[in-house]
């Protein structure tokens, strides 16, 4: 394992320290926690937005803390949901009297820990509500399974629910728009090479030199199949078409596109994927409102990418465009 770290068991602490010292005028660390909050939290009268999850997805989640987006992010251990008490600290920190909204990615651990935090908060009379993001079309939704995973589409939920909260909306209104994003966002990922959890020290899975994994999750959990590596065009087609099969994007006005790197994919390659994604959408008569190419929701140093499409209406467009001062998402 070759990593630029100090102690594999201290990576989250060191990282949080590195984040808060990078943006001292924007962020503050809630003492003795792995919670980073807006410097001016709580904002009185505004719904507070909290998200978080395991670490290793940087810039998610603390990179999205800032005016117009999240009020706080909670960093768990690498790939491990934070504990209820940490989430509860975040909730208390951002509660400005209008309630707190949680953005949870759909993993058993995240759901359990955030729900328990919500119970703790309610016991202290803080209004809490939440949305569970499950944008990954790679894994089928059936009554059997845990449901779909939350991946890069979560960033759009942060942005749009964040803008809504910033506009002074109520907790119910923020929840409504959060659910609207979840209903209209779909993603799918793929990988060429695995990642290594620092404290584990060995790669989380193996792929042959000519193999790729289609439908990968952001912790290395696969979804669809392993097969021979294909061209960027074919990869873009496979991801995009699976998304388009799942939701009818032709009925919306426009879409937002995100081509997200999973950690060690050169940005050059993300743009090469985007090239074909844009062509496909054009061929299908789906018009693109805005495109995001870069690392938004990573899986440590996994090599691969995901494609996300969000169907927009006027409200979502306005909120997507609204100003954000979050370090990793400025608009």
């Amino acid at each position: 394992m070759k990593k630029i770290i100090n102690d594999p068991n201290q990576v989250v602490q060191d990282m949080v320290q590195g984040m808060v010292t990078a943006y001292p005028s924007a962020l503050k660390q809630v003492p003795e926690t792995m919670v980073l909050a807006r410097k001016d939290a709580p904002v009185q009268g505004k719904v507070g937005l909290v998200s978080g999850g395991g670490s290793g997805h940087e810039p998610a989640h603390a990179g999205y803390v800032g005016k117009g987006m999240l009020d706080a992010a909670v960093a768990g251990e690498v790939f491990t949901s934070p504990t209820p008490d940490q989430v509860f600290e975040a909730i208390k920190t951002v509660d400005g009297g209008a309630g707190v909204f949680l953005v949870i990615k759909n993993y058993t651990g995240d759901v359990l820990n955030f729900e328990m935090a919500a119970e703790l908060a309610e016991a202290e009379d803080i209004d809490v509500d939440y949305v569970v993001v499950n944008d990954d079309v790679a894994v089928e939704d059936s009554s059997f399974t845990t449901g779909r995973r939350g991946i890069a589409g979560t960033v759009f939920v942060h942005k749009i629910a964040g803008a809504k909260a910033e506009s002074g909306a109520s907790l119910a209104e923020v929840k409504k728009v959060g659910e609207k994003v979840v209903a209209n966002v779909r993603s799918m990922g793929m990988a060429l090479k695995p990642c290594t959890v620092p404290a584990a020290g060995t790669p989380s899975f193996e792929l042959q030199d000519d193999e790729m994994e289609i439908g990968i999750g952001i912790h290395g959990e696969p979804g669809l199949e392993r097969k021979e590596i294909a061209s960027a065009d074919k990869i873009a087609e496979e991801l995009t078409e699976k998304i388009l099969e799942d939701l009818d994007y032709t009925t919306g006005e426009d879409v937002a596109v995100m081509v997200n790197g999973l950690g060690s994919t050169p940005e050059m390659e993300l743009y090469i994927v985007n090239k074909r994604v844009q062509e496909i959408l054009k061929e299908k008569g789906i018009s693109v409102y805005k495109t995001f190419v870069g690392e938004y929701m990573t899986a440590l140093e996994m090599t691969g990418c995901s494609v996300t499409l969000l169907k927009l209406d006027d409200e979502l467009k306005t909120l997507l465009d609204a100003p954000s001062e979050a370090p990793a998402f400025r608009s």
Binding site: G54, G76, E77, F79, T80, S81, P82, T83, P84, D85, Q86, Y107, T108, G109, L112, N113, M116
Partner: peptide, 12 residues
């Protein structure tokens, strides 16, 4: 366990 583990196994 609840406050130090996290993930699925912590709460469970």
């Amino acid at each position: 366990l609840m406050s130090k583990v996290g993930g699925a196994s912590g709460p469970l």
